[in-house]
């Protein structure tokens, strides 16, 4: 475990080195929040609740969704693909580290540095400019755990996408498709409640909702029944376990293809 903490520390320091980038990331998120505010304001123009959600609740959901999206966009898939393409992955194979855990902790470092930069400005915007009121409840306490589980699930998708570089010339198409499908099907851009009933039922049994819908609803509706809240976390844990096993199996298959030129 200590060696992975050392990797994490390295990733944190690297994240700090690129501070100027955070200014534009935060600015981008704030502009997005403003646009989303106007869009949803006009959707709620003639009504107070839609599908049981008030404007305040929907806006908490949407703004948190875009912020979590920024956090989870760690470019882990691109980094892994890059290491496969230029052969540096071979270095990790000769070291006593597990490549998946190595990539996981690099990615975690990126999430933590972005989180440190983005949390305060976003919360200030929401409370002072948009006058959003958060309801209090046990869901808020579960949110950090849920976010961590969401990160793991999101990472597993990034990991598999990156590993596809063993087979594909470039992962641009796969990575883009993955990102779009996850953000729509996970309810990152529109709460799942807005989808037609039949589609909603399908989306709730897919792993994607565990990345966005679950943590976002914990903050939007923090005072639901304890059993409901815990079962939401339980489903996330289940997906983490399933996807962890699947990614291990996939890695063992994919690594057999590896040929690095030059000795």
């Amino acid at each position: 475990m200590r060696k992975y903490l050392a990797i994490l520390r390295g990733a944190l320091m690297e994240g700090m080195a690129y501070r100027t980038g955070f200014f534009f990331i935060i600015l981008g998120n704030i502009i997005y929040l403003c646009v989303a505010y106007f869009l949803w304001h006009s959707i709620y123009a003639n009504t107070t609740t839609i599908h049981g959600l008030t404007f305040n609740e929907t806006f908490i959901y949407i703004s948190l969704g875009s912020t979590v999206f920024v956090l989870l966009k760690t470019y882990a898939d691109w980094q892994i693909a890059h290491e496969i393409e230029d052969g540096t992955i071979a270095i990790y194979l000769t070291k006593p580290v597990d490549y998946q855990f190595y990539a996981l902790f690099i990615s975690l470092g990126s999430v933590l540095t972005t989180m440190a930069a983005i949390t305060v400005p976003t919360l200030l915007m929401l409370t002072l400019v948009f006058h959003v009121t958060f309801s209090l409840g046990p869901g808020l306490l579960l949110f950090p755990v849920s976010l961590l589980l969401a990160f793991l699930i999101s990472f597993f998708f990034d990991y598999v996408t990156g590993l596809l570089a063993f087979y594909a010339e470039s992962i641009w198409g796969i990575s883009t498709t993955k990102e779009i499908l996850i953000s729509i099907l996970a309810g990152a851009l529109v709460p799942l409640q807005f989808f037609p009933q039949a589609i909603q039922k399908v989306l709730l049994v897919l792993p994607f909702q565990a990345i966005y819908y679950t943590p976002l609803m914990l903050v939007t509706r923090p005072n639901q029944d304890g059993s409901i809240l815990l079962s939401m976390l339980g489903i996330q844990v289940l997906w983490v376990v399933i996807l962890f096993v699947l990614t291990r199996l996939f890695y063992n298959q994919a690594i057999k293809v590896l040929r690095v030129a030059g000795g």
Partner: peptide, 27 residues
């Protein structure tokens, strides 16, 4: 193969916002 995969990616990415509109206009 890369051209085909990239085209699929482009197809999804260019239709993403329209997909959101489609969901919203259901309501």
């Amino acid at each position: 193969a890369d051209f085909i995969l990239s085209s699929i990616g482009m197809f999804f990415s260019s239709l993403a916002t329209l997909g959101i509109f489609w969901v919203l206009f259901d309501t």
